[in-house]
Simulated scan of single mutants.
Amino acid sequence: MNMQLNAREIATILASLRLFQQQAGNVDIAEMFPDHFIDVSPLSSVEIDDLCEAINLAEIGELDYVTHDFVRADCSIHGAMLSDNDCDIIIAEVKRLWASGQFHHTGVYWIANSLAANGMIHPTLP
């Protein structure tokens, strides 16, 4: 299964895993949720730590490609030149939109256009 989650969904999953981890020593989780553990056993505390770490790394890596070079390449279609500060503002907006589930990976150019129209960035045009 491969799906894209927003920051709120990821935070809820991580919190749920940590709660599950805390309760695992006090109750029989497989007995509490028998439909989920028909053919498998619950993760151990160490396995939950590993899963949380993997989710955190995947979340961070999701936008790793949105670098200054990527932003400049994506936004230079009409010759616009962006400063490092402009790129930082665009990347921050991408992360903000991604965290709220509103970012689409084809939208960096349009985000930059919107920021420029609102005077938030100042690209140099030919």
Rank of each mutant, 00 (worst) to 15 (best):
A112L: 03
D28V: 06
A73I: 11
C87N: 03
E31W: 05
I55C: 07
D49A: 09
E53Q: 11
D50Q: 15
E59D: 15
F33G: 04
T106Q: 12
G79H: 05
A116C: 06
I38C: 08
A112T: 02
M81Y: 08
R72H: 09
V108G: 03
I55H: 04
C75S: 05
W98F: 12
P42D: 09
Q23I: 07
G79Q: 06
E93K: 05
T106R: 13
L43F: 14
L115W: 01
D69N: 12
E53L: 14
I111L: 01
A112E: 02
A73L: 12
Y109I: 02
V27P: 01
F37G: 03
A73N: 15
I48D: 05
D35Y: 14
W98R: 14
A99Q: 08
A73M: 12
E31Q: 14
H78V: 11
A92V: 09
T67R: 06
G61Q: 12
P42S: 07
F33I: 09
A92E: 12
F37A: 04
Q102S: 12
L63D: 00
K95P: 03
R72G: 04
R96D: 04
N26Q: 13
L115I: 00
Q102D: 10
N85W: 03
N56P: 03
D74C: 08
V71F: 03
W98D: 14
S45Q: 12
H104G: 02
I48V: 10
A54K: 09
W98G: 02
Q23Y: 11
A112F: 01
V40L: 11
I89K: 08
D84T: 06
I55E: 01
G25Y: 04
